[in-house]
Design a binder for these strands. Structure first.
Length: 328
DNA sequence: CATCCACCGGAAATGTTGGGAC
DNA sequence: GTCCCAACATTTCCGGTGGATG
């Protein structure tokens, strides 16, 4: 994670305003595709906001239920570890107590993963806390928060919304160049190589994985052909990295989608993915989970933007979703 | 107009874990 | 120890969807 950030001045300014504003609560909703700097911008501004006593960063992929998130918030506020076995309402009471008279910023990153599990009860609680000066920053790769939470929650949240658009190729080039200059020996990266990467993907995380993979296999200098050569491997690594915190089932499910995509290329529907997953479980002698559960996991893959899904709510195809893996 | 497709996704049930109270 | 209980991951159950087809 770099120490500073190029671009995205508007968002950075917005965050800063939010943190320095002496007026009452101000909540933010930051959304946009993966690899556009949402997490980085939030992180950097959060670190810097030392006028605020309590600052918590909660990655909701990891803390994906109300209880886990509450526990993490408590841990962050009090700096003491706390075992399981407490009731949500206890934690809530203590959190209210701790934040009563201090300024607090809570960042909930990738909040869609929490909302999918628990609905918005955590958000409802957080927006209703009667505390002094309390900021909630919600970060998501999903478009609309309004659709994902109940009205009563949204109305007490009243967030300012901001969307990060994908970088242009030129911006991606500049950002990757700056990072490459720190990571690689000088004169070891061909302009054409970097240009190729930046023109093929504007997701910075993918770009970094790609450059890194190329650099590891390159001889003295990373050339355009080096880069082209590792394209698939680089994307596979990126996907692997995205799935790190998820279960073996997620990985097999993703593998199923990719295999089907290679084999037949078109019209992959959820049912086919599920049966391919079953076959893969046989091969690796893994236990299977139910279709209902897989449907949930498939949604995770969609949130990670490793697959794209198109939903058919009925029609000649029946009620299902059509799925395809994203790639470079 | 009835029926079918094929699975979505909400709701409730199940089984497990790790506390606290006695 | 034993009983009770909340939280959780997962399963079970099933109503619902809208164009195509006869």
């Amino acid at each position: 994670m770099p120490e500073n950030m190029v671009g995205r001045e508007d968002v950075q300014q917005m965050l800063q305003n939010c943190f320095t504003s002496p007026v009452q609560s101000q909540n933010l909703f930051i959304h946009g595709p993966k690899g556009t700097g949402k997490t980085l911008a939030t992180h950097l501004r959060l670190e810097e906001a030392d006028n605020i006593e309590d600052r918590c960063y909660i990655p909701c992929i990891q803390y994906n239920t109300e209880y886990k998130a509450l526990k993490q918030i408590y841990r962050c506020l009090s700096n003491e570890d706390i075992g399981g076995g407490h009731h949500s309402s206890d934690l809530q009471r203590q959190i209210v107590e701790k934040t009563r008279s201090t300024d607090t910023v809570l960042v909930l990153d990738d909040i869609e993963f929490l909302l999918l599990n628990n609905g918005d009860s955590l958000l409802y609680f957080l927006t209703r806390m009667e505390t002094e000066n309390n900021h909630l920053i919600l970060v998501s790769s999903q478009e609309s928060l309004e659709k994902q939470v109940e009205e009563r929650t949204y109305s007490s949240l009243q967030p300012r919304k901001t969307r990060l658009e994908s970088y242009s190729s030129e911006e991606a080039y500049r950002i990757l160049l700056e990072r490459a200059q720190k990571a690689l020996r000088s004169q070891s990266l061909q302009k054409a190589a970097l240009n190729h990467v930046a023109s093929r993907t504007q997701n910075i995380t993918i770009g970094l994985h790609w450059l890194k993979t190329a650099a590891e296999t390159a001889d003295r200098m990373v050339t355009e052909s080096d880069v082209k050569h590792v394209q698939e491997k680089a994307f596979a690594r990126y996907a692997e990295h995205q799935l790190e915190r998820f279960t073996q089932h997620h990985k097999l499910l993703y593998q199923a989608v990719r295999e089907l995509d290679v084999e037949q290329g078109e019209e992959i529907r959820a049912g086919m993915v599920y049966s391919r997953y079953r076959e893969l479980c046989q091969v690796y002698s893994e236990d299977t989970v139910s279709k209902r559960r897989l449907s949930h996991f498939l949604k995770h893959l969609e949130y990670l933007q490793l697959i794209e899904a198109e939903y058919h709510y009925g029609g000649s195809k029946g009620k299902t979703r059509e799925v395809k893996p994203t790639s470079l």
